[in-house]
Amino acid sequence: MLRTLWSDFLGLIYPRLCLACREPLVTGENHLCTCCRAELPYTDYHRLPADQNPLGRRFWGKLPIRHALSYLRFVRHGRVQHLLHELKYQGQRDVGTALGQLYGAELYTAGIAADFDLIIPVPLHPRKLAKRGYNQAAAFATGLAEGMKVPTVDSGLRRTANTKTQTKKNRVQRWENVASVFEVDDPTAIIGRRVLVVDDVLTTGATLEACGAALLAAGATEISIATIACA
């Protein structure tokens, strides 16, 4: 009773805020308010057969993948853009972890988690990692691992070059920017494994394609991809 009263008192002074809309959370809400949970633009791609998944079609003829998954649709100036901005530029790594937990639990309930042996996030270059302090894809991977009960390895891939931002590049330029910059740290941990490669946002898919190709070359038997959002 006293603990509840103290928590309520602290909530008045230091209210917990929704990660999407920044409105105060009420008792029973964690990370996202009920309104945002209801109104976020979910893709539900995990419910679609592979040949009807519009995300999977982006990789046809480029990379053989088992599952192409993305939790949310990116909508400019909407809640999802705000969440990603908080995650990447405001130091809110909890955004990635929380969304990973929610999506991971959904994938586990859908029976898809059983198709993965290992989760590997797209790595940042050490220089960029030192500047940001954390890898936003790894934060998402941590949440997914908790929700799906599948292990994650932050060091599965290594980025060998500090590439320029992909934001204003077209498909060809994005591929040229990342085509040969990923290496597998320990092939013995990859051989024979079904790997889920994780990133924050999918646009053209060039980065995930390059990561998947490196993992297949190292001996992974199957590649799937998952992101927080897709554009």
Rank of each mutant, 00 (worst) to 15 (best):
R159Y: 01
L215D: 06
V172H: 09
N135Q: 10
V153W: 15
N162P: 13
M148A: 10
A179D: 12
A229W: 01
R127Q: 11
R193K: 15
G219Y: 08
Q166A: 02
A217Q: 06
D186R: 15
A229N: 09
A214R: 10
G156V: 05
L216D: 07
L216M: 13
P187T: 06
K149Q: 10
E176T: 09
F140R: 12
N177K: 07
F140G: 09
R171E: 15
A226Q: 12
N135F: 11
V197K: 00
F182A: 08
V197Y: 00
A137C: 03
I228T: 07
S224E: 01
C211I: 00
V122L: 00
V184T: 11
G156T: 09
I225N: 00
G143D: 13
P151F: 03
L144G: 09
G143C: 12
T188C: 11
Q173M: 13
R193C: 04
R127M: 08
A138W: 13
L202K: 07
Q136T: 01
E183T: 13
P151W: 02
G205Q: 02
T207P: 03
Y134L: 02
N170I: 04
I223R: 05
Y134H: 01
A145N: 12
D186G: 08
V153G: 09
T207L: 06
G219T: 05
Q136P: 05
E146A: 14
A179P: 04
P121E: 06
V153E: 15
L157Q: 10
V153T: 15
A137N: 06
L208V: 05
R171A: 15
G156W: 03
A214H: 10
A213R: 15
T167I: 12
F182W: 06
